[in-house]
Amino acid sequence: MYSEEHKIYLKKRRKIRIWVRITQILILVIFLIGWQLLADYGLINTFIFSSPKKVWNTIMSLYHANNLFHHVWVTTYETLISFTLATLIGCFIATILWWNSFIARVADPYLTILNSLPKVALGPIIIIWGGAGIRSIIIMALLVSIIITIINVSQGFIATDPNKLKLMKSFHATKAQTFFKLILPNSYRTIIGALKINISMSLIGVIMGEFLVSKEGLGYLIIYGSQVFNLNLVISGIILLAILSACMYYIIFYIEKRLTK
């Protein structure tokens, strides 16, 4: 049984949590209503600024034309492929870098340069090499997400407590034993943290890729909308993208919570 004071404490906490949520929803609602009112009273030009109703209608017409889920799906699918590849290849390369410190030292400046290079600058080359299709999009997304994965994961590997390494050595553990019994499980959280960054990075890469080459996907909707000056389509695309990225983030967040207790 709790004391009265503790009950008040719990109640207060719950109250604050509810108020935060209510305020969050209110901001969204006020924003949408305000936007709509400004449009209705002609205070903003809906040709440039669109309006919630127009966005809704655009999304609905996409839906009725059976295009909505197709575009969302294409972007999702490309992101998942890049995400998976970046995670697997990134972790693999990080393992090599941990395994062989000579390779790690040699690779270090190259990784730093590749990491700081704005990958979008490589777009034109990627189109020429990879062709105007999904392959180029995935190469783009991989470039954006893989370097950061390698850097994060290998930093996690290196950060392992030297005393624990000493312990493994005192049992005469082989390098493989040290990796699988200590380094990998010990870097579990780091790797899951890297996944979280990776999913956003992959999505950024995919949208960048779609801007450049694609004929489908949310990035295509946005860039096509801007080319034909259909701002309704542009804003609809952005909103769908926001929803998609939030979904992906929360899925990873949920997985993280499940995996790390």
């Binding site: 407590d161 005393n163 624990k164 000493k166 312990l167 005192s170 499980p185 010990n186 579990y188």
Partner: peptide, 14 residues
């Protein structure tokens, strides 16, 4: 020979 360190070095995932 067995070696015991200053830190317990227990693995928190085991």
């Amino acid at each position: 020979v067995g070696y015991m360190l200053q830190q317990d070095c227990l693995f928190d995932f085991r």
